[in-house]
Amino acid sequence: MFGFGLPELIILMIILAVPVLWISALVSAIKSDFPGNNKIIWILAIILVPFLGSILYFIIGRGQRIQQSLVKCGCGSLVDSNASFCTSCGVKMA
């Protein structure tokens, strides 16, 4: 009667995948650090050209992120190596 076949399921998966791709690219770009104004450029690209901007971000943009080096504090928390103190326990970092 009103069954779903394979073509309908493929179309439904594509329709659901596009917003998930867009949201995950936007969240990743917002949470990451980039050199210069690259963060603003990537966020605008993802918002203004959602599908293409998201794909380009995952192909190109993720490689442009600034990698933070983390060190382990005495309390077991991971802390940025440039931090002056641990955010979890407040101990001054060396």
Rank of each mutant, 00 (worst) to 15 (best):
F4C: 12
F4P: 10
G5M: 10
E8W: 13
E8P: 09
I10H: 03
I10G: 07
I11E: 01
L12S: 08
I14R: 07
I14A: 10
A17N: 10
P19N: 03
P19H: 05
V20Y: 12
I23E: 00
V27T: 04
K31Y: 08
S32L: 12
S32I: 10
S32V: 10
F34W: 00
N37H: 10
K39A: 02
K39F: 01
K39G: 01
I41A: 14
W42M: 06
I43H: 02
L44V: 04
A45R: 12
L48I: 02
L48W: 05
V49L: 15
V49Q: 08
P50E: 11
P50V: 15
F51H: 07
F51L: 06
L52C: 07
L52D: 07
G53M: 05
L56A: 09
Y57N: 01
I60R: 13
I60L: 13
I60T: 10
G63N: 09
Q64T: 10
S69A: 09
V71C: 10
V71S: 12
G74E: 13
G74R: 11
C75F: 14
S77V: 10
L78H: 11
L78D: 09
D80S: 07
S81P: 07
S81I: 14
A83E: 05
A83H: 00
S84I: 06
S84P: 08
F85R: 03
S88A: 00
C89W: 01
G90D: 12
A94M: 13
